[in-house]
């Protein structure tokens, strides 16, 4: 079974629930390094995407384009804008399609990663959400089914968080706390981890070891 807009609609609902449940924990993680609003940002953004979800259509590119517009008016945070960028890339890349094959997911996410790096002026290794996306996209290479994608991406989240935890943040507000960021999970990475937990079937975010 491929990815179609019906699957994406369910995914959005799960993402909205996951970000609502994870709000306090993400805020607390962010408060150690920044102004403590990552949870609120994600809850509001995915809440808006869920509440304003476009009418059903099988046009995946059009669906992502509508989501990009909702993002563009709903968020101004750096992390939120990176979500906007991701929706714009997906819209462009899937224009005219009614399905995304699982094997196409990795190359699509790598394109999203590259555009996020360009927009955010970030590099791999800076300890941002982009490193997490890179880990997941790389883990999904040649993945051809949903169950395998779920397992691989969740494992990639754990591996990437472990890999970066003891490194310094090198960009954004957290870079100013460089030494303080050692031993701390990046809030953007945690946010993506929460989303992947939800999308891959685990909505019990409160019990998640990641958050």
């Amino acid at each position: 079974m491929s990815i179609d807009t019906q699957i994406l609609r369910v995914a959005l609902r799960r993402a909205a629930l996951a970000t609502r449940l994870a709000e306090d924990q993400l805020n607390k993680a962010d408060a150690r390094l920044g102004d403590g609003d990552t949870g609120e940002t994600m809850r509001r953004l995915f809440g808006a995407l869920n509440n304003e979800m476009p009418e059903y259509s099988d046009d995946i590119g059009g669906f992502f384009a509508e989501l990009a517009k909702i993002c563009a008016r709903s968020t101004g945070s750096s992390l939120g804008t990176l979500v906007t960028v991701s929706m714009m890339v997906m819209a462009k890349q899937t224009k005219g399609q009614t399905v995304i094959e699982w094997t196409d997911l990795s190359p699509l996410l790598l394109l999203v990663r590259d555009q996020m790096m360009a927009r955010g002026k970030a590099n791999l290794g800076d300890k941002t959400v982009i490193d997490m996306l890179d880990g997941v996209a790389t883990a999904l290479v040649n993945c051809d089914n949903a169950a395998d994608a779920a397992a691989r991406s969740r494992q990639a989240c754990t591996t990437t968080l472990d890999l970066f935890r003891d490194r310094e943040n090198r960009i954004g507000r957290a870079r100013m706390f460089a030494k303080k960021t050692i031993g701390q999970d990046d809030p953007g990475m945690l946010a993506l981890s929460c989303l992947i937990d939800a999308l891959s079937g685990d909505t019990n975010i409160q019990a998640s070891s990641h958050a």
């Binding site: 517009k69 804008t81 906007t84």
Partner: peptide, 16 residues
Amino acid sequence: CAVGDVFAGPSVDSCM
């Protein structure tokens, strides 16, 4: 002026 949430940047839409 494009106005963001408290301590958050303005959205792309409000900038436009």
